[in-house]
């Protein structure tokens, strides 16, 4: 069915509403002025130059990128086997496990962050790498489990059965047959958990310290005190980065495919 003119118009308006904040930030990021104002008094790239020279934000960016990569790997390593168990194995308490693994998604991150601080502070883990990884994994793992459960469930069981009859042990069959066929899901889960960690603000607010801080937290603090377009330049950089990752996945395998949609 061809979309009618009205439907197209509606779609255009929808996109306009969705994209206009980003467009606004894009324009402001190239502002020549000293303040976050619209319309900008003129255009320049001075705020991008200033951003590259801001050591606090740049070091926070490095921390966030490394943290997100570590979280993505941990989430895949923990979430992958858990997802396989939920999708494929019959055992008592399977439903409970599935519910427990997705529970953190239902809690407000504010509650999670506070709880983590209360637990990690006495252990001396607040404002440390392990503490941050743990906190982020708590929200990243449910995403990984969800996506990978769908991915594993989408691989026909007969494939594994065929591998068994050919002499593969259940472990070999899972690793050599099911996992490669669930790879698009694993990559999607990796990208998504990376972005979840990279964007995570609320939990980080509780867990960062003066020597270890993440980019969203620093952005938040910066925007509290300063009102220059530097923050817009940073936002655009992050958007470009996220878009680049999506593009990369799209190039590798088709993004919609990776997200488990046909």
């Amino acid at each position: 069915m061809k979309p009618t003119l009205a439907l197209r118009l509606l779609a255009c308006v929808g996109y306009l509403v969705l994209l206009s904040p980003a467009a606004l930030v894009l324009l402001i990021s190239f502002s020549a002025g000293d303040f976050l104002t619209f319309p900008p008094p003129g255009f320049s790239t001075r705020w991008y130059v200033a951003l590259a020279g801001n050591s606090v934000l740049m070091s926070a960016l490095g921390t966030s990128a490394i943290l997100a990569a570590v979280v993505a790997v941990v989430a895949l390593l923990v979430g992958g086997p858990a997802a396989y168990a939920i999708a494929r194995l019959e055992f008592p308490g399977r439903g409970v496990l599935a519910a427990l693994l997705t529970a953190p998604l239902l809690l407000p991150t504010l509650v999670l962050g506070l709880a983590l601080l209360l637990v990690l502070q006495p252990l001396g883990l607040a404002a440390t790498w392990p503490g941050l990884v743990l906190g982020h994994c708590l929200v990243a793992i449910p995403f990984a489990v969800r996506i990978m459960t769908t991915a594993f469930a989408g691989v026909p069981k007969e494939l594994e059965a065929a591998a068994w009859t050919l002499g593969a042990t259940p472990f070999q069959a899972a690793l050599r047959i099911t996992l490669p066929n669930a790879a698009p899901g694993a990559i999607a889960a990796g990208v998504l958990t990376f972005l979840v960690s990279f964007d995570e603000t609320v939990i980080s607010l509780f867990l960062v310290g003066p020597r270890l801080t993440t980019l969203p937290v620093e952005m938040f603090r910066y925007a509290e005190h300063t009102t220059d377009p530097l923050i817009a330049a940073l936002a655009m950089t992050l958007i470009a980065f996220a878009a680049l990752m999506v593009l990369l996945v799209e190039r590798l395998m088709g993004f919609s495919n990776a997200m488990g949609r046909e």
């Binding site: 026909p156 007969e158 494939l159 059965a161 065929a162 009859t165 050919l166 042990t169 259940p170 069959a173």
Partner: peptide, 14 residues
């Protein structure tokens, strides 16, 4: 199954 040494042709071919 992996210790039975039987060749199976599945309906879906698998």
């Amino acid at each position: 199954p992996h210790k039975r040494h039987m060749g199976v042709v599945f309906q879906s071919y698998a």
